[in-house]
Computed example of a mutant assay.
Amino acid sequence: MDYRDWEILKELYNQKNLTKTARLLFITQPALTSRLKHMEEELGVKIVTRERRGVHFTPQGEYLVQSAEEALAHYQKIKENAQNMSNSESNKVVGTLRLGVSNFFANYELPHILKLFKRQYPHVEFKVITGWSRDVTQLIHSKDVHISFVRGDYGWRGLSKHQLFEETICVASKDEFEIMDLPRLPRIEYRGDYLLKSVIDHWWAENYAQAPFISIEVDQVDTCREMVINGLGYGILSSRVLSGIEDLSKVQLTDQEGKPILRRTWMYYHKESLEWNVVKAFVHFIENHDWTCSSAKIK
């Protein structure tokens, strides 16, 4: 089994059709059929069976397709690392940078950051994986990415980190409100990051004896914000989400000592990855970026 074999299995599984797969891989159908037969003989298993509407993968074939995904991803990672190491030896800032990025950061901050960085280093390419901050933290720990951008104070043991900015958490409403009246007021709830939800739930438990009145539940913070703007209820949102919106009544969440509850955004990376010029250049760029100007863009 070689790299081309894994590509064939992956594409055939997606297409379920020999003719279409051969065309997409720029080979003839007889050559594709011959290669499949060779794989089956080499492994001693039946990979696919032909049916009237295409091909069907056997259980062994299904397993090989899953292995193909892993093998191709591993090969790509090795290729990128080798290229980055080669470029480091020549002091060139060239290569592929793999980033793990929290959903909010990916939507509001990352596009502008990559545009500015690309102006300075036009030969750098990016592979970006987005998700909840907890999942993105795992990506950097497992070295599936070179750099992670994480909102919240997740575990960073063994990693280098740099704080980008911090923000308060606010109760926001279209209408004026008293903070003690929140349990009786309609709340727009959204499925946020686990750590943020824990912070908000802890604050609520310290201040109220009854559960909040959840009138609407949504999946995205942007949807929650728009519903708050349209007067459908109050939301508990980080201040960066509310930046640029002036006609809302806002009250910051504070702890028992009256200090604002803060949410921080971090850049995580492995110190040894700075040996690669592309990682070192990006880390240096982020450390010197003006995040105050960046936040002003959010509307």
Rank of each mutant, 00 (worst) to 15 (best):
A281G: 07
G61Y: 06
E167Y: 09
T21Y: 02
S198Q: 14
S273V: 12
L9D: 07
H202K: 12
D247A: 06
F285K: 07
G258V: 04
V171Q: 00
K250H: 06
W203G: 02
E125T: 12
G44I: 11
H289A: 05
G258C: 10
S243D: 05
R157Q: 12
S238M: 06
K271R: 13
L232N: 03
T168F: 01
D222N: 08
T33N: 10
L159I: 02
E178P: 01
H289K: 04
E226W: 06
D247F: 04
G155R: 05
S160Y: 09
P183H: 05
I27E: 08
R184I: 01
K10S: 14
E226C: 02
T168V: 12
V128A: 09
N207W: 10
S295G: 03
E69G: 07
K16A: 09
W204P: 01
Y190H: 00
W204Q: 05
H146A: 14
W132F: 13
L116K: 09
Y63G: 08
I147W: 09
N81K: 13
K10F: 15
E166Q: 13
S273A: 14
E166R: 11
Q120D: 13
V124M: 12
N87S: 14
Y234T: 01
V283S: 06
V55I: 15
S102Q: 03
M39N: 10
E167P: 03
G235H: 01
G231R: 01
E246M: 08
L114S: 03
L36W: 07
H284S: 15
S295P: 01
R52L: 13
D153S: 11
A71E: 14
S249W: 13
I245E: 01
F104Y: 10
D135V: 10
S198D: 11
L196G: 04
D153A: 13
D219I: 04
T137L: 02
K79A: 10
D5W: 14
I140T: 14
S133H: 06
G152T: 03
S67R: 11
L72H: 11
H123S: 14
A71P: 07
P212Y: 06
S67Y: 11
P183R: 05
Y190A: 00
L36M: 12
R184V: 01
R240L: 06
L185Y: 06
V278P: 06
Q60K: 14
G244I: 01
K174R: 15
S148R: 02
I200K: 02
E125R: 12
W203I: 09
V228R: 00
L64E: 06
A22F: 07
H38C: 09
M39S: 10
I236T: 00
V65D: 07
E166C: 12
E42M: 15
L110I: 15
E167D: 10
S148E: 05
A211H: 07
H56P: 02
K10W: 11
A31N: 11
S148D: 06
N207E: 08
K127Y: 11
V251R: 00
Y208Q: 03
S173F: 00
